[in-house]
Nucleic acid binder design. Structure first.
Lengths: 142, 142
DNA sequence: CTGGTTGCAAACGGTTTGCAAGGCA
DNA sequence: TGCCTTGCAAACCGTTTGCAACCAG
């Protein structure tokens, strides 16, 4: 966790502040593993008696993203989704029935894949998206 | 190509019609391999002296999608993108500099991956998205 | 006090919808 | 002629932006 502290220090040095919303978002994303949309964030915050305007949330999420605290993913519809980025690289299993989101890790397999693509196509890969859709264990058996 | 003809016949039997826009879209997507957004489609059609209202295009694209002629993918921003679906399953290499889109195929590798996930998680996978981002050969060397 | 941060309202961009008019079979 | 399809305009929804007020350092 000292990496996090270092980054926070660096913020302050650059003139940024620790506000109510910012603190709330950081702790929310540290305890929440699923990728959240803005309205999901709003309801999560409401439970903690914290209200924040959508525009504030977007600004804050963009800030935390450029500061590498959060990363953004594209899942289903047109909504932006964010999740804590100080974790191992992973991918999502999106259940089309209950809308639940699970996670899988598969670094080695993909590293191989990317290498072979770079060789075959001369394309320098810097990132990728990989999400799976289907039915989770519960919904499958229901 | 008889698969296509069969589907067209089936349409007519169900009361659908072959209109100017529909024909234009079909031939456009058959000759165009890249996934297109609505405004890209509009300019492609304009070159052929065909104009179509965005709402018409969306309706038509949704129709062609539910009829399994087109499939929809999510690449970069909030724009919907469609491509011809009667082709082998493949994925995209999106160049972040020139915005060009290349393709790769990698069925076997992914089939394996999916199997191991289904076993490990009990999650029944019905589809997935996999897109790569980076620099194409040209942009990399420039 | 200073300038990063906020809420509000308005603008924005892509997409969707209601409805009356148009055109394929 | 019947009804699928179209264009138009307005609504929609998530997101972005300008601006004045606010507040952490």
């Amino acid at each position: 966790m000292h990496l996090l502290e270092k980054l926070l220090q660096d913020w302050k040095a650059r003139g940024h502040r620790m506000t109510k919303t910012r603190t709330a978002l950081l702790s929310l994303f540290m305890e929440e593993t699923a990728p959240l949309s803005v309205d999901e964030i709003e309801t999560r915050l409401k439970k903690k008696r914290i209200t924040a305007n959508p525009s504030t949330l977007y600004r804050e999420l963009d800030f935390l993203k450029t500061e590498n605290f959060l990363s953004e993913i594209v899942l289903d519809g047109p909504k932006r989704r964010f999740e804590w980025s100080h974790r191992e690289h992973h991918h999502h299993l999106y259940c089309e029935k209950c809308k639940g989101i699970e996670e899988v890790e598969m670094d080695n397999e993909l590293a191989e894949l990317q290498l072979s693509i770079q060789k075959k196509k001369g394309f320098k890969i810097s990132s990728h998206t990989l999400e799976f859709f289907g039915l989770c264990k519960n919904c499958k058996n229901a």
